[in-house]
């Protein structure tokens, strides 16, 4: 395993991957990634476009099945578990490409997440009115994300930034132990970024959850992270403290240089 990490954390990691690989056709989008996530820490995953970050999340949350390798969560092998099982065990995620229920109201989007977390799944007789507390909880999340004005609008009518906020509200509603955030501030206007950042900071401040964040904005990554992992062409290039990563020569030459080249091309 990663020696830098193993030395620092005495507690067992909440999540651990062992030579995790997934190939599409012949191309391995994630290759032999062995990564341990310290419980209640903040880990950022960085890497150029197409490095395999989202694909790694898809493997962790169960949207994709790995070609080989294993995933251990809270000491249990979850490699074969479907995504709904993982969510129930406390792995929640937000999606890079907004992924909400377009024609349901904003409130209903969140309420469904609250209902799932409460474990009310197959109750087909009682009216939703009996479950007003779900709605109340969804309302407070709406308020937190400053979406109250959009309460009854169908999600499809939200502006992009609002959809991203809704995405995060749904994730918070799940009350997960491990939060996987895939570029939560991507494509939203500058004035909306601080609001989302503040929510993420709040969750971090509480200290009871583990957060894994995929992000391109380096200042945000450096500000929030306890640890940083670098993915490059599907492989885990480095994993360590922000200082160690910034001083890492491999990262500097092989990745950060390449990243800026990519950015210049795009």
């Amino acid at each position: 395993m990663n020696s830098a990490k193993a030395a620092r954390s005495a507690a067992p990691p909440i999540l651990e991957t062992d030579r995790l690989t997934v190939a599409f056709g012949g191309h391995a989008a994630v290759r032999e990634v062995s990564l341990a996530v310290t419980d209640r820490s903040f880990l950022s995953i960085i890497g150029p476009n197409g490095a395999g970050k989202t694909t790694l999340f898809n493997l962790l949350s169960g949207q994709l099945k790995p070609t080989s390798g294993r995933i251990t969560y809270k000491g249990m092998d979850i490699t074969g578990l479907p995504s709904y099982e993982r969510t129930r065990r406390g792995i929640g995620r937000s999606f890079q490409l907004t992924h909400v229920f377009p024609r349901l109201s904003v409130l209903e989007n969140i309420r469904l997440a609250v209902q799932s977390r409460a474990g009310v799944r197959y109750d087909f007789f009682s009216s939703l009115r009996r479950h007003r507390k779900f709605e109340a909880e969804a309302e407070s999340l709406l308020e937190l994300m400053r979406l109250t004005g959009k309460r009854n609008s169908p999600a499809i009518q939200l502006a992009h930034g609002e959809k991203r906020k809704l995405e995060i509200a749904m994730l918070l509603a799940l009350d997960s132990d491990l939060l996987l955030l895939d570029e939560p501030t991507a494509g939203i206007s500058l004035e909306e970024v601080p609001a989302i950042l503040e929510v993420i900071r709040d969750v971090k401040r509480q200290g009871s959850r583990t957060i894994v964040l995929i992000e391109h904005k380096m200042e945000m990554v450096l500000d929030l992270s306890d640890e940083i992992a670098v993915l490059y062409q599907g492989e885990l290039l480095a994993h360590g403290t922000p200082a160690a990563i910034m001083g890492n020569e491999t990262v500097q030459s092989a990745y950060l240089g390449g990243w800026y080249d990519d950015a210049a091309e795009a």
């Binding site: 949350s61 169960g62 949207q63 479907p82 995504s83 709904y84 969510t87 129930r88 995620r93 999606f95 992924h99 909400v100 229920f101 377009p102 024609r103 349901l104 209903e108 309420r111 469904l112 997440a113 209902q115 799932s116 977390r117 009310v120 799944r121 197959y122 109750d123 087909f124 007789f125 009682s126 009216s127 939703l128 479950h131 749904m170 799940l174």
Partner: peptide, 24 residues
Amino acid sequence: RSPLGSVLQAIRENEQRTESLGYR
């Protein structure tokens, strides 16, 4: 309009997302 029925509409809207919320 029951909790189960409300999930049906979520499935209609976005099956994958419904599952990722923890519904089978």
